[in-house]
Design a protein around this nucleic acid. Structure first.
Length: 864
RNA sequence: GGGCGCUUAGCUCAGUCCGGCAGAGCGCUUCCCUUACAAGGAAGAAGUCACAGGUUCAAAUCCUGUAGCGCCCACCA
């Protein structure tokens, strides 16, 4: 027997440890497989609302599949999150006055590992406390031995098949991290800046004006470009101009890139510090003169005035402007909105920098990854995201995978003293493969790989690749990926490419894209706005089940979730309702020895079975398209309105009668427990606890409901009954007739027994034959379908008010009647509409006419 | 500059693919402590389906355009 009150805290931890200890989350052998890998959270992070949403969605699907008899694996794990984690540890060290260079690489890394060990369990424990049904025995970490081996193997085979190359390229350089970052890790924002127009002397003893937003880069100018069709400057093409301050003579070149309409139509070209200029530099074979170093300071080179040496690039800008001004070389200064590229992690302004990096050639890999989505082997849900995916994939750039960091997978490449590189599993292998003498000194590449490189391997590396094992056979490709749209490029696209490259098979079939959790006003949750909510706190306050349900109830594909704590409060009330419903079922049914269903006779029981079946069917079909929110809203409405509000009341009547008692006891118990099973994936603790008060085995080991056989068509009689009950209750309210007052209802003929029994018991009425009614009495009428009841006016109500009520009712019916009438009289409608629809209108016409005429009779009797 | 999405009740959203009398939850109003549940029950009120045209017997739904909001991508110095 269950406790008196619903207390989530009292039951949730108990079941979490029970499930885990008794290995309930391990896959159970079955023909049908369902596997999913978690989008690995950062190992040092803690759970936020986005995680809670994502994990709740995954867990609902996972638990449903488990109940449906699939061999179900949800594989958890965490990501080493290279840059963020390193920054975090560096920051902590700095607070103690230690820099990572003081420690050196080895010592620093052991500090990071310490940190990882310390906080690594944090997020998994938080997941456990929300009841996530991951197979924790298979938990992985992107830097553990197996996954590191996978990274090495794939780096090597990509390299050997020419998909990885090392090259000197223009990259986005983060001067704080002192590392290259990929194009994707750059966010541009429009900011107010200046456009400086600067005079460059020409060899014709004249000057031209060039416009720039970054005057400090003129130190590295190696050309000035104009549009080839620009008549104003055609005489200068091929001539020299002098770059101020460094007094370098550079050529005026013609390039289509230059827009003659913008600024003066002349552009300074700095091939070493601008992406466009870099391209132009390549096209025109210009010199690449670096004038800013990797820390963002001006280089101390001979051609640069010494007062600028080592100066930070922004200070240098001021200094250069001053100097130009002194030399009278500033033509004008205008306000100008500029796009400032910042690093996602450090938030500092990035510097385009030419440097030597490792790249993945993506064109061919992307081609295959596009094909599998185009031919529907992989489906995005919602489908609209496929367009975004295609757009990026068609224009994909080579992927810069090296990072000048310490925390991460070190690049498996070694250099000899001449700078030649050799790729291999380790130094020994490199030597033997390349016939290098043992005397030759080799040093390993200092850099590590982009974190997303190891994440891209996640769907198979976590299953044990490169070892060909049972898990890989069974669970690859995985069934589903649930993730946010913000990492489609970072992660999803790359997993598809790497999955196909490595396994020759797609990594997952469906990609379910969820939305963002926002605050109740629809704003993004952010620390700076102070509108973040802590899922753990919410769970503590209202229960994990309530938190899960409040998220699930809003979680349709692609849909943002505007979250309000009220939703969680409401979900807890729902849990309480279910709890009390369970008590009710116990109270009325525990006395039976067997709950085996037998023949079903009662209309109300047929009705609830039909409602259950409809709900189950709708739920199942919504879940096929991952409309989790709609599925659970459907279940919620059915449970609360149909089962608890209506059916439980009907059942009380049925169970007070010996002839229908046992049948109803069986049905109510059966339906309740089946419905509870459907709720289980969303509210696992509550349902498991309730289940345990009815059954010996666990709900998690039970199975998903099937449709219940009923030989009875769904007639409308119970709906008629509900309608009449509602209108009589309305009638009571209108005339303040106390519930304790028994109303006398007169029926034309004594209606079916079950109907009148329910009616009289639910609205406290006494039902009599119409013959007992004095013809002179004014009456009012309640009708639905074939069921009709009259009530004597003088006993209960005010005639005038009732005339009003009836007239309103007639008006309503009349409107509907008019619609049907006009349609049926419309030749074109009769010609074109489906027969079904015509029949529907005819039926409506008939029933409306009938009801109206009955209401009019009552109306007349009142007006007498 | 390109691309995508959204606009339906006070709030959050279904419904739009495939046209057939506008739906749900929350909130709101009134009544009710009736032995599962007041964390509850009952009954209500509430919408020019953003706007303007068009197609159709029939449009929230299809077509064209407009406006507002949001997001993504992009090198105009």
């Amino acid at each position: 027997m269950q406790n008196q009150n619903y207390d989530p805290q009292a039951i949730e931890e108990k079941w979490q440890s029970h499930w885990e200890v008794s290995n309930k989350f391990l896959p159970k052998e079955s023909e049908k497989k369902f596997s999913i890998v978690i989008p690995p959270p950062n190992v040092t992070g803690s759970l936020h609302m986005g995680h809670a949403l994502e994990h709740s969605m995954i867990d609902v699907i996972t638990r449903m599949k488990r109940l449906q008899g699939y061999e179900t694996l949800w594989l958890p794990g965490t990501d080493h999150a290279g840059i963020i984690t390193q920054l975090l540890v560096e920051k902590e060290l700095e607070e103690n006055g230690i820099s990572k260079h003081d420690l050196g690489r080895e010592n620093f890394l052991s500090k990071v590992w310490e940190w990882k060990e310390k906080s690594g369990d944090n997020i998994t424990n938080q997941m456990k406390s929300l009841g996530m049904s991951c197979d924790w025995s298979r938990e992985r970490f992107t830097m553990d031995e197996g996954l590191s081996e996978a990274v090495r193997e794939i780096f090597i085979s990509l390299y050997e098949q020419d998909y990885i190359y090392k090259g000197t390229r223009m990259v986005n350089w983060d001067t704080q991290l002192k590392s290259a970052v990929s194009d994707l890790e750059v966010s541009s924002s429009a900011e107010n800046g200046k456009l400086w127009s600067i005079k460059y002397k020409t060899e014709l003893d004249d000057y031209i004006v060039i416009a720039t937003t970054r005057p400090e880069t003129l130190l590295g100018d190696t050309a000035v470009a104009v549009n080839p069709d620009d008549k104003r400057y055609s005489h200068l093409i091929g001539k020299k101009v002098e770059v101020p301050i460094v007094n370098r003579m550079v050529e005026v070149i013609a390039d289509d890139y230059v827009d003659p309409e913008f600024g003066s139509g002349c552009v300074k070209i700095t091939p070493a510090h601008d992406f466009n200029d870099y391209e132009i530099g390549l096209r025109h074979d210009l010199d690449f003169v670096r004038c800013i170093d990797f820390e963002g300071n001006i280089e101390s080179k001979d051609f640069i005035p010494t007062n600028l040496h080592g100066l930070n690039r922004f200070k240098a800008r001021k200094e250069i402007i001053n100097q130009l001004d002194n030399e009278n070389l500033i033509h004008s200064i205008d306000d100008h909105e500029i796009q400032i590229p910042r690093g996602d992690r450090s938030k500092t302004i990035l510097e385009p920098m030419v440097s030597e990096q490792w790249f993945v050639k993506t064109k061919d890999l992307a081609k295959k990854a596009i094909d599998v989505v185009e031919n529907d082997e992989i489906k995005y849900i919602p489908k609209a995201w496929e367009k975004t995916y295609f757009e990026w994939m068609y224009n994909i750039q080579d992927w810069c995978i090296s990072r000048q960091q310490w925390w991460g997978h070190r690049i498996p490449a070694w250099y000899d003293s001449e700078g030649n590189h050799y790729v291999g599993r380790d130094e020994l292998e490199v030597r033997s493969k390349n016939n290098l003498s043992e005397k030759m000194e080799l040093t390993q590449d200092e850099d590590v790989l982009d974190t997303w490189f190891s994440s891209a391997l996640w769907p198979f590396s976590t299953l044990g690749w490169p070892n060909d094992n049972e898990d890989l056979q069974k669970y690859y490709p995985t069934s589903l990926l649930v993730t946010g749209f913000d990492i489609i490029f970072f992660w999803v696209a790359r997993m598809i490419m790497m999955g196909i490259f490595t396994m020759n098979e797609i990594p997952f079939k469906d990609i379910l894209i969820h939305g963002l959790v926002r605050d109740s006003q629809g704003r993004k949750m952010s620390k700076s706005l102070g509108n973040t909510l802590d899922p753990l706190e919410l769970s503590k306050k209202h229960g994990a089940d309530a938190l899960r349900f409040s998220l699930i109830e809003k979680a349709n594909p692609g849909q943002d979730v505007p979250f309000d704590e009220e939703w969680t409060v409401a979900a807890k009330k729902f849990g309480n309702k279910v709890w009390n419903a369970a008590k009710f079922v116990h109270m009325y049914t525990d006395e039976l020895d067997s709950y085996e269903l037998t023949e079903i006779k009662c209309s109300e029981n047929h009705w609830i079975i039909n409602r259950f079946n409809q709900t189950l069917e709708e739920f199942n079909s919504l879940m096929v398209t991952y409309k989790i929110s709609d599925a659970y809203k459907t279940l919620y409405n059915y449970l609360w309105a149909d089962l608890f509000d209506w059916y439980f009341e009907f059942a009380k009547t049925l169970m007070s009668n010996d002839s229908s008692k046992e049948e109803t006891q069986k049905i109510i118990r059966h339906i309740f427990l089946k419905s509870l099973t459907m709720l289980n994936p969303a509210m696992p603790h509550l349902t498991e606890e309730i289940w345990s008060s009815f059954n010996k085995e666990n709900l998690i080991d039970s199975s998903w409901p099937e449709l219940i056989n009923t030989n009875h068509d769904d007639d409308n009689f119970v709906e008629n009954l509900k309608e009449i009950i509602s209108s009589i209750r309305n009638f009571r309210l209108t005339y303040s007739i106390k519930n304790s007052t028994t109303i006398s209802l007169f029926s034309v003929k004594i209606q079916e027994d079950w109907f009148t029994t329910q009616l009289s018991s639910l609205v406290n009425a006494h039902i009599e034959d119409i013959n007992g009614l004095n013809n002179e009495e004014s009456t009012t009428i309640f009708q639905s379908g074939k069921f009709k009841f009259e009530v004597v006016a003088s006993e209960y109500f005010d005639k005038e008010k009732e005339v009003n009520r009836l007239e309103n009712k007639i008006n309503q019916l009349q409107k509907s009647l008019d619609v049907s009438k006009s349609r049926l009289e419309n030749e074109n409608f009769m010609k074109n509409a489906k027969q079904e629809l015509i029949d529907l209108e005819k039926n409506n016409l008939d029933s409306s006419l009938d009801e109206i005429s009955n209401l009019e009779i009552a109306l007349n009797s009142l007006k007498r």
